[in-house]
């Protein structure tokens, strides 16, 4: 009996440092955040009064927030598709017999090591200076103006930059998964006369289902929470019309929350948006993971 309590104590002591940090920087701020979303807190000083659900009511009437919601969904869908398709294709490439494949692996992964802000600024220069001057000198009308300051193409630039950055990381997950597939299964299929395409769709993809679960989860949360590239590349601009009001065409939810809290100095309302953001992302993630889990097979 005595040894049991001792064991429990040891376990607790081992757990304590991490648990302490987790409670201090995640759990407590999270609960405080929910509390602040029901107040009119301005970010400094004490809370002057409780306002109930007013912040929540206000944000659902705000065209800027609703628009951010829609573009975030659009961006997430586009980004999940492009990142995973590109990552899957390059993972097939770097696991094939191609020469210099280790060099390719490193090359595709390197963009992921560059910080989002630097990357955003570099690509902003490419999109608003380099491409237009190429477009002008070659007389290509579509390229002669900055793609960022056009409300119809700005989301495409966001997807291009994020895919460029993130596909290499997802590629690693696919590569590991492809290498984990037993050679004998693939060889048996080849002997049975299965073509390359059939081997990929009928054998590799089903056996890689757990890699898809992880990759889709990572790209879903990463796209939904996108902030750094958004700030540095487009800063939310340009302006477009939505519900008869001017709104920022490429302002994703995370940036919209930041702007509400810091630019408009409306901490409590920003906090209410963050709570909604959390709930929506949690629901989406649960749906995605359980759907993907149901597709996984044992080999």
């Amino acid at each position: 009996m005595k040894s049991m309590t001792r064991r429990k104590l040891t376990e607790f002591l081992f757990l304590f440092p991490t648990l302490f940090a987790f409670v201090m920087v995640i759990i407590i701020p999270f609960i405080l955040g929910i509390y602040y979303s029901f107040t009119d807190w301005q970010g400094t000083g004490a809370v002057s009064k409780m306002v109930g659900l007013d912040n929540y009511k206000a944000i659902f009437q705000e065209p800027g927030f609703l628009h951010s919601f829609l573009v975030t969904l659009l961006f997430t869908v586009l980004n999940i598709i492009t990142v995973n398709v590109v990552a899957f294709i390059i993972s097939l490439l770097v696991t094939s017999e191609i020469r210099g494949r280790n060099l390719y692996r490193a090359g595709f992964f390197i963009p992921n090591l560059i910080g989002g802000i630097v990357l955003g600024l570099v690509w902003q220069f490419i999109f608003s200076n380099i491409l237009p001057s190429i477009g002008q000198s070659l007389g290509i009308a579509g390229l002669s103006k900055s793609l960022i300051s056009n409300k119809d193409t700005v989301m495409i630039t966001m997807v291009i930059v994020n895919t460029w950055q993130y596909a290499g990381y997802i590629m690693l997950i696919y590569v590991a998964s492809i290498q984990g597939i037993s050679k004998s299964v693939l060889e048996a299929a080849e002997v049975d006369g299965a073509k390359y395409w059939t081997r990929i769709t009928r054998i590799q993809i089903p056996l890689m289902a757990n890699a898809f679960t992880i990759s889709l989860f990572l790209t879903l949360t990463n796209s939904f929470k996108m902030y750094d590239v958004n700030v540095a590349l487009t800063n939310g601009g340009p302006v477009t019309m939505f519900m008869m009001k001017p709104v920022q065409a490429s302002e994703l939810l995370a940036l919209n929350i930041y702007q509400t809290a810091f630019k408009y100095n409306n901490m409590a309302q920003g906090q209410a948006k963050a709570v909604i953001f959390f709930i929506v992302l949690t629901i989406f993630s649960i749906i995605q993971v359980s759907w993907n889990k149901s597709k996984e097979v044992e080999a």
Binding site: P238, V239, P246, Y264
Partner: peptide, 21 residues
Amino acid sequence: LPDGFGMGTLGAIYELFASGA
């Protein structure tokens, strides 16, 4: 002006006008 009103709210309208929309 209230925080963010000039740069954010009005700034967006100026930009919309500048873009010719």
